[in-house]
Design a binder for these strands. Structure first.
Lengths: 133, 133
DNA sequence: TATGTGTTATATATCTAATATAACAGTTGG
DNA sequence: CCAACTGTTATATTAGATATATAACACATA
C-alpha cells in the first residue's frame, strides 16, 4: 500500500488515512472497482488499530467514494464518484476562506494565491493522466 | 465587534475566533494599531470563557498578526504583517492538497477549481478595497 | 466447517477544548 | 495613593475526541 502515517502529526490518523485514500482515488492510483485492504490487514500493515482504519473507511463510504460489501470488503466506488454539487462547492469555499484570508493578510497577490492553488490541483491531475486506464 | 461564534460547529471556538480576527485584519476591518477588546470584555460579549479568547489572541500573537502590550492590551500589528515566505507557502500547499484531491475526485475541472479559489480570495480583497485607509 | 469480511459493543488511556476561580504583576486614571 | 484595568499564570473540573485493546456477532465462501 502507498499509505504513510505520521504519528507525530497533529492531524488525526484516521484523517491522514482518509485523505491519502481519497488522493489515491483522485489520481487513479486506486481504480474504480479495485479492492482496498481489509481493515484488519491495513491496520496491521500500518501498526495501528482496526477501528482507526474502520473510521476512515466509514467516512469514505458515507461520502460516497467507496462501497463496502459486508462480507467481501471495501471497494473503490464503481458507480460514479459523488458529484461536485452546490452543497460541496459551498463547503469548499467555506474551508478555503480562512486560508485566503491569511494569505491576503500576509500580502499575497491574487496571482500568488492562484499560482499555489493551481499547482496543488495540477500536481494531482498530472499524476492521474500519466497513468494508464 | 463583528465576531459571530457558532457553538454547534465542530470547529473549535478559539479557531473560529482566530479565523475571524485574521479575516478582519486581512480585509482592513481591523486597521494596524487598532486595539482589540480585552480578553475579558470580548469573552463576556460572546458569552465564552476568558481563556478561550486568550488562546486565540496568543495564536495570533505567535504568528505575528497582533502585538500584546502586557498592561495595555492586544493591538493589531503595526510594524508590518508577517510575510508569505516559502515556509508559509509550503504549509498552504499542504493544506490545499486534500481539498484539491476531493475536488478532482468529484470530477471538477481545473477551471472549476480555480473559479472557487479566485472567488474566495477576491471576495476578501474587494472588501478591503472598498474601505478607506 | 473453518476462515475472512465488516460491524457492534465495552472498556480504557490520553489528549484537546472549554469552563470556573483565583491570584499575580504592572500600568493608568481619579 | 488607590481602585480599576491589562495580560498572565496556576489549578481544577467537565466533556468530548482520538486511539487502543478485546471480544463477539452475522454472513458469505472456499
Amino acid at each position: 500500500m502507498f499509505v504513510r502515517i505520521d504519528l507525530e502529526s497533529d492531524v488525526p490518523i484516521y484523517t491522514q488515512l482518509t485523505n491519502q485514500i481519497m488522493e489515491g482515488i483522485a489520481t487513479g492510483e486506486l481504480q474504480p472497482g479495485e479492492a482496498l485492504p481489509s481493515v484488519r490487514s491495513l491496520a496491521a500493515d500500518l501498526g495501528i488499530n482496526l477501528h482507526t482504519v474502520n473510521k476512515a473507511y466509514t467516512i469514505l463510504k458515507d461520502s460516497g467514494f467507496i462501497q463496502i460489501h459486508r462480507q467481501k470488503g471495501a471497494v473503490v466506488q464503481s458507480g460514479g464518484m459523488p458529484p461536485a454539487d452546490d452543497a460541496y462547492k459551498e463547503r469548499l469555499a467555506e474551508a478555503l476562506r480562512p486560508m485566503a484570508a491569511e494569505s491576503l493578510g500576509r500580502g499575497m497577490s491574487l496571482e500568488d494565491w492562484l499560482t499555489i492553488c493551481r499547482a496543488s490541483f495540477e500536481q494531482l491531475k498530472a499524476k492521474r493522466e500519466g497513468r494508464p486506464i
